[in-house]
């Protein structure tokens, strides 16, 4: 048996909350090949981010674990770069400097100054940001910020690229542009990608496999859909393709028929969960105002 590239092995996640333990994930099992593009889709709050954070090493699974190329993941690292939902650029650094922070850290002692400069510019060019390298995040649009976030992640030369709703905050047109760029880049670099999305079209267009998650609590993988559409894919041509529409329908069916809106099917659990959240918030506010 060959060693898998990335193995999410029987991962369960239990959070300790003021209202008692809360099982977010139960027995999530997924093997991913090198260069594969996998989307995670599911209703809000089912635990997609939790899966991603466990792979990133930002959260530690309660049981089970993640193995990347034969090594168990036990802390975050640049070989599993993350693109966060809200770009997460340092607002005081320009686009160039944001990428530079990552490149300096990852290629310390491996690349010369000139090589680093070249590498930073190369990555910014990949996401078509070469014209705005010296702008601060506050001076650029949401789409541009997200591009820089992706460039920063790519510049780490990650084995796995983890993206948590990378285009969630963007308008439809910008989102489409970003998807095109991402397909181009993926075509060129062949990274392994795990992407969380809420958008069925985005999932079908970009992925090799779509992993559909059941609703929480104790969410797990409900169904996996192989997308055997030829690459490069063109959204306009695909719009009329029966194959594409078949995949689309399959995902929609899963989300809206078999696993309805969590608000209606989860019932009692959800409000309790929300309550504990707001309690956390108020605690924070109190401690801040006490300090002030």
């Amino acid at each position: 048996m060959t060693i898998e590239h990335l193995n999410i092995d029987h991962v369960s996640m239990v959070f300790e909350t003021p209202a008692g333990p809360f099982t977010a994930l139960e027995n999530v099992n997924l093997k991913i090949d090198e260069g594969e593009y996998v989307s995670l889709i599911g209703h809000s709050g089912c635990g997609k981010s939790t899966v991603l954070n466990v792979v990133a090493g930002l959260l530690k699974a309660t049981t089970g674990g993640v193995v990347l190329d034969g090594t168990e993941v036990d802390e975050p690292g640049p070989e599993r770069a993350v693109v966060f939902q809200h770009h997460s650029l340092m607002p005081w650094l320009t686009a160039y400097e944001n990428v530079e922070l990552a490149v300096r850290q990852v290629f310390k002692g491996k690349k010369s100054k000139a090589e680093m400069r070249e590498w930073i510019e190369y990555n910014l060019k990949l996401v078509h940001m070469e014209h705005a390298m010296d702008k601060l995040p506050g001076e650029t649009s949401g789409g541009m910020k997200q591009r820089v976030g992706i460039a920063r992640a790519l510049s780490m030369q990650p084995k796995v690229l983890l993206m948590d709703e990378p285009f969630g905050a963007l308008d439809a047109l910008t989102r489409a542009h970003m998807q095109e760029s991402l397909m181009e880049i993926q075509n060129e670099l062949g990274n392994t990608v795990i992407m969380i999305t809420h958008d069925v079209d985005e999932a079908v267009l970009l992925s090799d496999r779509i992993v559909m998650m059941t609703n929480g609590p104790a969410a797990t993988i409900g169904e996996i859909l192989d997308i055997k559409l030829e690459r490069p894919r063109n959204r306009v041509e695909l719009a009329d393709s029966p194959e594409y529409n078949h995949y689309r329908a399959a995902v929609l069916k899963f989300l809206y028929e078999r696993h309805q809106n969590p608000e209606s099917d989860r019932g009692e659990d959800k409000p309790a969960q929300e309550e504990s959240c707001s309690e956390d918030m108020s605690l924070r506010v109190v401690s801040n105002s006490a300090a002030a």
């Binding site: 930002l58 975050p76 690292g77 640049p78 966060f84 340092m90 850290q105 990852v106």
Partner: peptide, 10 residues
Amino acid sequence: DLVNVGKVLR
């Protein structure tokens, strides 16, 4: 999130 970026970068 910025702290997490720092963690990912070690």
